[in-house]
Computed example of a mutant assay.
Amino acid sequence: MKTIVIIGGGAGGISTANHLSYKLREKIEANDVKIVLIDPSRFHYYQPGFLEIPFGLMGQEETYREMNEVLAKGITFLQEKAIKIDLENRNVTTEKGQVKYDYLVIATGARYDYSAVPGFTEGADHFYTLEDSKTLKTKLNKFNEGTIVVGVSSMPYKCTPAPLEAAFLLHDMFKSRRLLDKVKIIYTYPMPMAFPDKGISDIALRMFDQRKIESNLDFKVKLLDTKSKELVSSNGTKIQYDLAIMTPPHRGSELIANSGFGDQFDWISVDKFSLNIIGHEDAYAIGDATNLQLSKSGSVADGEAIIVSDRIAQEIDGLSPYSLYDGSGGALMITGIGMASMISSNYTMAPMFMPESYAFYWLKLIYNKVYWNMTAKAVLTGVSK
């Protein structure tokens, strides 16, 4: 029997498991293949929804489901924390024991390294966890006057357009409450642009001008001075704030740090096309866990999950794996209440920003609802309970 172990924690774990269960369902039924998902959480979270909770666009209960509700038939779910991976001996150590594998897929996502920016825990708010999103919603509902800074603490971070979306949503929230004359919104970014792509950055800056949102670019956050309520950059520039909504510093999983094969920030080096961990044809990494220069987003993780599940299935079927990832990814980016755009890119195409429209906004809201039965369950490839 071939054992495929998937270590979850990010968006790609569920997707990979479900795609593999479909492609190998006959071999699973014949006990020739076993798929094991290891994840410490009993819930799967729809993380894009965390941004929308503070603005009333999504309810907190809509952003998570029990793992067993979204896992396809034939998958063994171990609700355990993986502690160490031995790539040479094909072994995963969990808090409860050892799990041997023939193929490994690491989809652990990213972790938040709050200690990387002094004062972040005490001085900043964000929407990158369910609890922090709920806290931010409470604070925004009570905020009637002052300066809100929306910024990125460091690169890389999950969902590249999210800080832009937050700035636009803040503008429309306070516009609807007739408080724009009392609230100043400032956007900071650690690059000389408002977005990693200059074309999209130029569009965003024009939209800022139309909304009178200020921007402070190339602002590399050094610390948050919670006494004076100031953001301090690495070159000494300071920005006064009443509410700081900042992306937390990101780095790779603690599991990768413990296993010793990540880079200095615990990201995993993979081949950009095969997604194999460098030097290991029986092991893959996808999504936020890798060091690929791609958007850390659910669409990228899902696209990579399809390729990895194809390659493993091809090899188990006796073929030389031939499916290759082309870097495709995309996102529906909210540009305000009632408006959104679509961003898409791949290895050979720079990010493309499609004109904002009411239709894209509603497509975003619809996708929030159908995610559980379309993407999470990989229903488009025939996966079912």
Rank of each mutant, 00 (worst) to 15 (best):
M193S: 12
F168T: 05
Y114Q: 06
L217T: 03
Y112G: 03
R206I: 07
D218V: 00
D102G: 01
T160R: 00
K96P: 08
G199K: 12
L224Y: 11
E122H: 09
K134R: 10
G109W: 01
L180W: 01
T121Q: 14
K212R: 13
F195P: 05
D197N: 14
F174H: 05
K158Y: 10
K220R: 12
T129F: 05
K184Q: 13
A116I: 10
D181M: 04
G123Q: 09
K175S: 15
P190L: 04
I203D: 05
E131Y: 10
A167S: 15
M173H: 02
G151P: 05
S153I: 02
F120Y: 15
F174T: 02
V105M: 00
P196I: 09
T147V: 15
F143E: 04
L140K: 05
G151S: 06
K158I: 09
D218H: 03
H171L: 01
K137I: 01
L170T: 05
P190M: 04
Y187Q: 03
T138C: 04
R178T: 04
A124S: 13
S201G: 08
H126A: 08
G97W: 14
N144R: 09
Y101F: 15
N141Q: 13
Y187D: 07
D181L: 01
M155K: 06
L223M: 15
Y114A: 09
A166R: 04
Y114V: 07
R178L: 06
A162I: 07
D181C: 03
A107L: 11
C159S: 08
F120T: 14
P192Q: 05
F168K: 07
A166Q: 03
G151Q: 06
A204N: 04
G119F: 10
D132E: 15
